[in-house]
């Protein structure tokens, strides 16, 4: 699905990623953990194609294609979805409008006709249940005045509608209380499938109790310093990030 080789990237000229290697197979869920400033969010945004995040070295291959050949929106239409750490408030643009525009952009890309109004409404109602949101949500401006939990649920709603093949969840747990976390995790889990891979970026192990990953990678100073199974997250929880510190120093050196 996704192969990252020796990825180096800078943000406003500052090197952040310094040689990332990752292999994400079909249907796999990979957790990326690491302390603040380790490059987790940078990695997520490089995959999505954010401007200002400059790749200086290395490759990312997605479904056999060079990812860097694709513009942000083309990546999205090819099935990459980024759930934002800080979802953007957009006054004057309703959720339902965005969902419709986004879904139809993807369909057009795949050579499918636009969803008709009835079909769309049926689909969106079904997905709303997944994240326990009410209909009226649809008619509010995107994320405007939403609570932290509502914003994150809205991200998952969009993901559910777009049915990506690769979902990157950037600190989806940040700012969530335990109830909201469970709703979000349930939403994500219901979207797990053999064709859909996920990268779950998180600072804390807590989220991984609910979204159980197949693999865990620890990022420090722009490199993967440790990889393992889901038990790695528990070790991190018990020992803290200083536990991988020695490896991190070695990696930096």
């Amino acid at each position: 699905m996704l192969t990252i080789k020796n990825l180096h990237a800078t943000v406003v000229g500052k090197p952040i990623l310094k040689g990332i290697n990752l292999e994400i197979g079909d249907g796999e869920v990979h957790a990326i953990m690491g302390p603040n400033g380790s490059g987790k969010s940078t990695l997520a945004n490089v995959i999505a194609g954010r401007e200002g995040y400059e790749v200086t070295e290395g490759t990312i291959t997605y479904k056999g294609k060079n990812l860097f050949d694709l513009a942000v929106e083309e990546r999205a239409r090819e099935g990459i979805f980024l759930a934002f750490q800080y979802p953007v408030e957009i006054p004057g643009v309703s959720n339902i409008y965005l969902l419709k525009a986004a879904v139809n952009a993807g369909r057009k890309h795949r050579g499918e006709p636009d969803l008709d109004a009835m079909g769309f409404l049926k689909l969106v109602r079904e997905k709303l249940k997944l994240v326990e949101m009410r209909d009226e949500f649809l008619h509010r401006s995107i994320n405007e005045g939403f609570s932290g939990g509502e914003k994150k649920r809205n991200e998952i709603l969009q993901m559910a509608m777009l049915e990506p093949t690769l979902a990157v969840l950037d600190e989806t747990d940040s700012g969530l209380d335990i109830d909201a976390l469970k709703i979000v995790a349930n939403g994500v889990n219901s979207l797990r499938s053999a064709e859909r891979s996920m990268i779950v970026v998180t600072h804390y192990q807590r989220l991984l109790d609910y979204i159980v990953p197949d693999y865990v990678h620890v990022l420090a100073q722009g490199k993967v310093v440790k990889s393992g199974g889901k038990e790695l997250a528990h070790e991190l929880e018990a020992h803290g990030y200083s536990w991988v510190g020695d490896d991190a120093k070695a990696a930096a050196g």
Binding site: A48, G49, R50, E51, A71, V72, E73, R75, A76, R77, F81, L82, F84, P87, V88, I90, L98, A101, A102, A105, G106, H109, Q158, L162
Partner: peptide, 13 residues
């Protein structure tokens, strides 16, 4: 950031 947000949902720039 809002432009980027919309683009990540498949909407052209």
């Amino acid at each position: 950031t809002a432009v980027y947000y919309l683009r990540t949902r498949g909407i052209d720039e």
